[in-house]
Amino acid sequence: MMEKANILVVDDDKEIVESIAIYLQNEGYTVSKAYDGLAALDILMQQQIHLIVLDIMMPKLDGIKATLKIREEYNIPIILLSAKSEDTDKIIGLNIGADDYMTKPFNPLELIARVRSQLRRYTQLGNIVASDSKIVIGGLCLDTDEKSVTVDGEPVRLTPMEYKILTLLMRNPGRVFSADEIYSKVWNEDVCVADNTIAVHIRRIREKVEIDPKKPKYVKVVWGIGYKMEKLP
């Protein structure tokens, strides 16, 4: 793991840049600051940058255009920050090459967690050796031989039932399982319970593997239908 990663924080609001810088420096990262898109591109050319936290609404060059420019030459992780909370804004941001999207106002701890996650994925990407026993979805890695689960390299402790459910979901990414299906496949019994056992288990898995369990990245609740594992590269 690379120490002292250099992170570029770009926002037209200096206080926000400053606060983010404080959090990141507390975590041991070095921080470069820019207050508009053009300045960000300048810094990017002069320094070795490992991750960018980029605001969308900025003067001179906005976050979306800046992202497009950066992606022409760099492969570094980009976390977009925006006051725009619409789904469409998020979709556009992620589609043009951003790696994550956070809406203001955000929980600074969550931002740190996402930064850490992105950095791990960026620096360790080549280290993960895909094999038959390993199922890899994004930063989530499940090893059926070791019966272990890691998120961005960090081991996660799951109960046997949680592990079985996660295995079922990860083996079929994108497919929606209803609670009854999961129950019959994991417990190998016909449905006889009319309670929220599965729902509770899924929630607990989310709390363990997701940075923000309310806005899960991997294990998604399809409301009123069931659950699924998001299909990620």
Binding site: D13, E15, I16, S19, I20, I22, Y23, M57, A83, K84, S85, T103, K104, P105, F106, N107, P108, L109
Partner: peptide
């Protein structure tokens, strides 16, 4: 709504961050 939203959220972000700090 969108603009006020942005204008409110930006300072709020700072408030949250610094009060947490």
């Amino acid at each position: 709504i969108t603009n006020v939203s942005h204008d409110l959220k930006t300072p709020l972000t700072s408030i949250i961050n610094y009060s947490d700090l």
